[in-house]
Each structure stands twice: as C-alpha cells, then as structure tokens.
Design a protein around this nucleic acid. Structure first.
Length: 836
RNA sequence: GCCCGAAUGGCGGAAUUGGCAGACGCGCCAGGUUCAGGACCUGGUUCCCGCAAGGGAGUGGAGGUUCGAGUCCUCUUUCGGGCACCA
C-alpha cells in the first residue's frame, strides 16, 4: 500500500484505461462455464460529438455491464456506428468533404471520447454500417427477402420532402412536415419503390408482444400495438347500379350500422373511378372536380385538419342488405391505403360521415339506440352516436345488441356471398428506397430482356462508388455515375442498369446486434453458434424515440431470420429499458438543435468518474433530465472524500487482512463494529436491489454517500473497532462504487493491497444477520397524527407494544379523558391509537 | 379528439408494499480552520404562529375510500410524449 496523495482524476483515469486495454479486460468470448449476459446500448450516429445525452445512455449500460461481470456473468458489451445517413451527405454538399472521410473522422473523435470515459466495450467487435464488410449483409438479407417475396417493387404515393429532395418514411413525417425540416410541408408523389413486406408479420408482431410484457416498458408496447393497429370487421360488396359486374368493396368494423348508410365514399385515387365516370352525363365536369380534389390532397400536408370535401360521381350503389340505392361519392377523407380505399357513409354513427352528410345534405338515419338513457332523436343530434347500443330500424336485426348484430349480420352476409370477415391493419409495408448516395446500394439490376434481376450472392457486395459529385438535388446521386449504373445482366450478360436508390438506414440498424456476435465473419452475416450463444439480448438500453421504428423493424428482421433458419428465438430483445432524454433548454440534446454539452469538456473539467456519477445521480435513469451542472460539484466532492477516507487509513490498514464478511463472527463485536457493519450491509442490500431491479442509481449513490458520511462521523475509526472490520467496510464501499466510477475504484482497490484489478472481483455477499437492527423506533400516532416515538427491541407482542405506547410519558396526558376506540399496530413501525 | 406518462422545498430529487413527507446532493445561512482566497470540517435550512418548548398547515386543484393517502378511487388543471379523418 502506497499513500495516495492528491486525487487526480485525469491521471488515474488514463492509467487504468491503459491497463484495461492492455489486459483486454472486457473481451468477451463464448464460455461454457459462466452464464452469458448481453447488454447493449443503441448504436450512435457518428455526428462528431459525443454529448451528455449519449453519455447517459452509455453510463447506464456500462454500470450494468460492470455490475453483471462482478456477479459472475460472461458479459458481451459491444458498440458500433450507425454510419450511413443524410448528415454525411449534407456535410459533403456544404463543405466538399467526401462522406466517408467526414464519417471516419467523426468516428475517430467519438471513439476517443468513449475510451476517455472508460466504457467497458469489447472493441474487437466494433462495427460501422457504412463499411462494405457490413452493408454486404444488408444486401444479402435483401436478396433473401426478394427470393421469398418479402421484398417487392410497387408504384406508390410517397411522402416527398422538397428540401431533402427525397422520399420520407411515414415515420419521418412529423405533423405533416419533414422530421429534419420541421417547417417544410411534405408533398405526395408517385414513384416506383422497393418495399419490405413487414405486414406479413403483423399478427406475429402483435402476438409475440406477449413475450415482451415482462421485460419491456408498457408504453412502448402500447405504442407498437397502436402502430400495428389491428381491427376486425367485414369487407362488404356493394354492386354498382346499371354497371354489369362492377362493385365497390368497403371495409367496416360496424356492419351493424349498414341500414343507416346514406352513401358509398371512395378515396380520390380509387382505381374504379375512371370507369365509373364512363357514360355519366356531365362526367367531364365531375372529373374536373375530382382532379381538383386529388390535386388538393397532394398539396395538403395536414389532412387531419382539412375540411371534409366530396364530389358526387353520378353513380349509385346497391345496399346489399336493404336493396336501397346509395349515391357514390369521392371524399377527401377516405384513405386510399387503409382498408379497401372505400367506406360506407353512416352519418348517424360516424362523426366524419356526420360532418360530410351535413355539408352535402345527405340523409341521416338512426339505426343504433343507446342501451340506457333517452333515445336519440334526429332533430336533436349535434354529433354522431358512435357507441355500441341496440339496433333500430335495421330490418330483421332490429332490437339486437350491437355486438350480436355485428356477428349475425356478418354471418348472414357471408352465407349470401356479399361479404367476408376481414382484419385490417394500420401497419403498412416498409418502403426502403431512398434517393440518396450515402447508403447501402440495393443489389438489383434492370435488364431490358430479363427485367428485374437480383445480383448474385457471389457478386456481393455491390460497392458504393467513391468520389461521387453530390449536389443535393433531384434523383439519386448514383444515377449520375455511369461506371456504377451501366453493368451487365447477371442472367443474360446483356446491357443492364443498376438500381440507383439506396436503402433506408433503418435497415442497417435492424439486425446490427447480431453482427456483434460474429463481427468479422466474411461468409455470412453471423454464425449460428455465435448468435445462438449470445442471443437474445438480455438488456437493451436506448431512447424512447426509437420505441416504434427501430424496435418494430428489428423485431421484423428477427422473424425473417427465424424463417430463414438462422436463429431459434422469436424475439431478439428480452428486456428493454427506455432512458429519459437529456435536455437543454427544454429540447433533446442534439447537434441539430445546437444545444449539446460535450462529454469531453465534462471529462476535462471534472474527470470522467465524476461526470459518470453525476449523470446517474441527477435523476433516475427513466426520467427526462434537464442538463444543469449545479450539482456536479457535489459528486466531485464526494469522490474526493472517498479518496481521502482511504488515504487516511492506508497507513493503519497496511498488512491488515480484511475480514471476509462471509465468515465474520459478531459474537464479540464492539458497538462501533456492529454499527459500521450494519449500515454497510443495509446499504449493500439496497444498492444490490437497485442494480438488480429498480435501476435507481441515484438512490444507490445517496446511500453510499450516507455510509461514507457515517464513517467520517465515526472517526477515529480505529478507536473501538477492529482494523479488519474497518478494512472490510472500506472495501465494501469501493466495490459498490466500482460499476459507477470504475477508475477511482480500481485505484483505491489497488491501494488497499489488491492486485489483478476489479474486472473479475466478485460483488460482495450480503449478510442479513449483519444488516439486522436490534432496536426499532416505533412511532406513536393518535388518530393518525404523529405524537411520539419509542425505541423497542425485537420480540415485543402487539399488546405489549400498545401498553408501552399508552403509558409513554408524552402520550399518556394526551389520552386523559378520552376513550380508546381501537389500536392499530404495524410491527416494528407504528402504533396508532384511535380515540374519541 | 384518442392513448400513455408526469406534477413533492429556492433547485435536482427521496419516500421499494397505504405507515415519521422532504433522504442524498446543489444552493443559501451560521460557526470552525486558514494571512487571504480556495479547499476542508461542524451545525442549520418546507411554510405559518412562537423568544422557546410547542402548535398548525403542507406533495398542482376539488371530492372520496381508510385508523392512516405523495402513494388507491372519481373528477379537474397544467406540462411532456405518442397516435390521429384507420372506417
């Protein structure tokens, strides 16, 4: 044991980081002897600066990784870079730096920061999604999906951001505007796009959430459930009058309201429309109106707030139940992509239809009456009645409860062949084409004779060309690179053109955590044994902003991989933790908001242990955190205090063998020894629980602070306490701090005479008998109000406790002249005397 | 509009199961130490009345359940997040 001198965080931190690195302390390999634990933080986009928002994420993960190692787990804790994406391209346009160069230098910078914070990553497994070694496998997965009909091409209307000059995923549209350009309304445009058939897995994605109930936050599951948006109903056929063989299909969840239908409404893009106009007198003007509606739709970013509008087609449909003729309208609020793109208009029982009917004077009929309360009256209706109730004026179904009517009418309609049961989903297939340079090339060529041809596996990866001129305008930048575009058809050898769109970067992040298990595999995305050993992920940690997109795409990919026989499990992530955002000025800390507090700066000013500790101490990790440095000094002071505590005792504890708690005999222990051990083990119990279950690291730290304060209050420690006990408690403090502030802990551990470092040291064993209190403070209440306290030992009966309370000199006078109605006793805690 | 979540001192937050509200830290006040500053140490710090002992109020607001509510229930306000003509 050498005396410590001053606490110099920077020196200590650099020293231990070097040692860890030399030892490969955090390398994880398959190991049959220890249970595995895969803990992962969501991979960062290499924007260039690692800020306190990232830091919070990684500090939580690192504390857990280090704790689990101490608990004897074989811990896999990797990191990588989500390095394709628009910012690199924008930087290239703005500053003329090639995206690869920009990305590499950002990664180097951020990696240095990571190391500076001492995160216990296995760097051998580092990945970067923009490298051909990685995106090769994006292409490989795409081809597998293409073979299975899970990747397909279709012309579809897409969200187009005129600023980015590209397509946006639905998820990238926020309030009708581009997520990057928050004031630029998104336009609607029709293009040929590649899609992944995620909808094939709608039910599975929904059902398998059962497996996630225990380990995922409720709110994430709710969001995903709403996103998938399953609803059961019926598809009903309405024949078009005076048009042989033509019919319109609508989807409804409320077939029971069909007798109240007063029109059939089509979405403005409905494929049947041109045919409907044929032979209708004055259809020219109808078409003009219809086109106006369509145009308007394409411009309107915020459909939800637009007024209801419609155009009568001049045609009628036959209600298959009542035989009535219903006018066919085109309406702006009918969505082409949901259900069948057509609905029946039931103004009495759907608010949108109600508004539409009011505007265009369509009849309103009441066909559902509430089960209780006054009956609905037409002239008093100011809004639609959308609840269930009892069918009315509905032919043979009148009088049935709504749910029964739905069942009966569906069954009857099915029997007659005019309808069938159908389940509809809000979830749509995933459009992955991006008109961008900095992404994974889609491995497909277009041949004049063979059509769409997949690039064979042997020719993968289709490499992204370097030195491409980026202007930020128009079609995909790759289209302007003839060496890339012009190729030979793999099938016929004739001239062919390559696909010039690249993949959505969400593809990269949908399976990356499998790659970590076998990061250098050049024959497959990963080997089945490696993934089989490490998966599923035991703990995934990331921001709530990924609750839907990333996490639903990843689940989809896992299901495809399972169908490909690559994995056995159904769900890739067992437990998910959504940490709160770090904000500054009320907005999420991010480079694009320009409100980042750099992690390097914090490390420089306070040392990384202090910065790590403060991010955990300032708030429980699930809560949002407004960044504020006011409290960070307190953490610096505390670490100094711990450092000095050890330093003060280094001399005296030299050569002392710390009494192992496991074996410690307390029979002859002094009061001071008992006190120290009791508080230490009470702290250990709660800190352990915080790591295992609650993740309230802020309270763990508070408790350790209290323990240190208590030791200070008990100074001089060697008076009335065995140095072996003192050393034991000091070691306990160091070990409890080790996952949170690893550098200072290593330093102190070495100072205490241990060699070999903390990486393989066991988490201390909790001992109930050491933690047990001998006396309890019982509070005495009268009518629920605190009136006194007594100190009692173990083993008092309830009656004895009441006896003691009633006769307490403080309590007795307050009871004089009153009648005790009853007493409530909570053992070891409370006596409540109820008086009148 | 619908669905989630939150609201506690000057500030960040604590109270694991319905049982002493305000742990721990910041800030502030007082004292010690110091040539001074910093650092460190000790004590105090929800509000109101009171010199004090003590008493009263108190967890966004209003009601309720209970011997007892920050915690459970009903309504409500504000803030945050998600979804939104989803038929």
């Amino acid at each position: 044991m050498e005396p410590l001198g001053e606490y110099e965080p920077q020196r200590i931190e650099a020293k231990w980081q070097k040692i860890w690195d030399e030892q490969g302390a955090f390398h994880a390999d398959r190991d049959a002897k220890r249970p595995k634990y895969y803990v992962l933080e969501m991979l960062p986009y290499p924007s260039g600066t690692l800020h306190m928002g990232h830091m919070r994420n990684y500090t939580i993960g690192d504390a857990v990784a280090r704790y689990k190692r101490m608990r004897g787990f074989n811990v896999l804790h990797p990191i990588g870079w989500d390095s394709f994406g628009l910012p690199a391209e924008n930087a290239a346009i703005k500053n003329g730096i090639p995206p690869r160069e920009w990305t590499h230098s950002n990664i180097a910078q951020m990696k240095a920061t990571c190391n500076r914070f001492g995160f216990s990553y296995d760097w051998r497994r580092e990945i970067s999604t923009c490298e051909p070694e990685y995106y090769h496998w994006n292409q490989w997965f795409f081809l597998r999906m293409l073979e299975r009909g899970l990747a397909y091409r279709k012309r579809s209307s897409v969200n187009w951001c005129p600023q980015c000059q590209t397509v946006l995923a639905n998820e990238q549209v926020v309030d009708g505007c581009c997520w990057r350009h928050e004031t630029t309304p998104v336009e609607v445009k029709e293009i040929e796009q590649w899609f992944l058939r995620i909808t094939k897995y709608s039910d599975e994605l929904l059902d398998d959430m059962g497996e996630l109930k225990a380990g995922w936050p409720e709110r994430v599951l709710v969001m995903q459930q709403n996103w998938i948006g399953k609803s059961r109903g019926a598809r009903i056929k309405f024949p078009v009058a005076k048009m042989e063989g033509a019919s319109i299909e609508v989807f409804t969840t409320r077939i029971d309201t069909i007798y109240g239908a007063s029109a059939v409404l089509l979405s403005p893009g409905h494929p049947l429309l041109p045919k409907l106009f044929e032979g209708v007198p004055g259809s020219g003007s109808i078409e003009t109106e219809w086109n106006r509606l369509r145009q308007k739709l394409m411009r309107a970013a915020d459909l939800a707030k637009a007024e209801k509008e419609g155009v009568f087609t001049g045609r009628f449909a036959v209600d298959p139940f009542s035989g009535e003729l219903l006018p066919i309208w085109v309406a702006n609020f009918v969505l082409a992509e949901y259900g069948t793109g057509a609905v029946m208009c039931v103004p009495g029982h759907d608010q949108r239809d109600f508004e539409f009917a009011r505007k265009y004077r369509l009849p309103v009929k009441i066909v559902v009456q509430p089960l209780t309360g006054p009956s609905l009256k037409l002239d008093q209706m100011s809004e639609a009645y959308t609840e269930y109730g009892r069918a009315a004026d509905s032919g043979p179904y009148s009088g049935m409860d709504s749910s029964k009517a739905i069942e009966k009418m569906t069954a009857d309609a099915e029997a007659k062949g005019i309808a069938k049961r159908e389940t509809s989903y809000r979830l749509k297939d995933w459009g992955i084409s991006r008109q961008r340079y900095w992404g994974t090339p889609i491995p497909v060529v277009y041949c004049e004779t063979c059509g769409i041809v997949a690039v064979p596996d042997e020719q993968l990866p289709v490499r992204l060309p370097e030195n491409v001129a980026l202007t930020g305008q128009g079609q995909s930048p790759l289209a302007g690179v003839p060496e890339f575009v012009n190729t030979k058809c793999p099938k016929c050898g004739g001239a062919a053109r390559r696909e010039t769109d690249t993949m959505d970067t969400f593809v990269d992040s949908s399976w990356y955590f499998y790659r970590y298990t076998d990061a250098r595999n050049d024959r497959a995305p990963y080997g089945p044994e490696e993934a089989g050993y490490w998966f599923p992920i035991d703990q995934y940690i990331g921001g709530i902003e990924h609750a839907i997109l990333h996490l639903i795409y990843s689940r989809f990919f896992a299901k495809v991989m399972r169908d490909l026989g690559m994995i056995q499990h159904r769900e890739p992530v067992l437990r998910l933790f959504s940490q709160g955002m770090v904000q500054k000025g009320g907005r999420a800390m991010s480079k694009s908001h320009g409100n980042v507090v750099g992690a390097d700066e914090m490390a420089q000013r306070y040392g990384c242990d202090t910065a790590r500790m403060y991010t955990l101490f300032a708030a429980p990790p699930a809560k949002d955190l407004e960044w504020n440095e006011d409290g960070i000094e307190g953490c610096a002071r505390f670490l100094n205090k711990v450092y000095r505590l050890v330093d003060r005792h280094t001399e005296k504890l030299r050569g002392v063998e710390a009494e192992k708690s496991r074996a410690m005999d307390l029979t002859h222990a002094s009061a001071k020894e008992k006190l120290l051990l009791r508080q230490a083990h009470q702290t250990l119990r709660r800190v352990t629980n915080d790591f295992e279950a609650r993740w309230h690291f802020n309270t763990s730290i508070a408790l350790i602070m209290e323990l240190v304060n208590e030791m200070q209050a008990q100074e001089p420690l060697d008076e009335g306490a065995d140095p072996r006990v003192i050393k034991n408690v000091i070691e306990l403090i160091v070990l409890m701090l080790a996952p949170i502030v690893p550098h200072i802990s290593e330093e102190l551990w070495a100072t205490l005479g241990h060699s070999g470092g903390l990486a393989r040291v066991e988490w201390p064993a909790f001992r109930e008998d050491l933690a047990k209190e001998e006396q309890f403070e019982v509070i005495i209440q009268i009518n629920g109000r605190l009136r006194g306290k007594i100190l009692v030992g173990e083993g008092l009966s309830e009656d004895e406790l009441v006896e003691r309370a009633v006769n307490d000199p403080r309590i007795a006078p307050l009871l004089a002249g009153r009648t005790i109605v009853k007493t409530i006793v909570v053992p070891r805690k409370i006596v409540n005397i109820v008086v009148r």
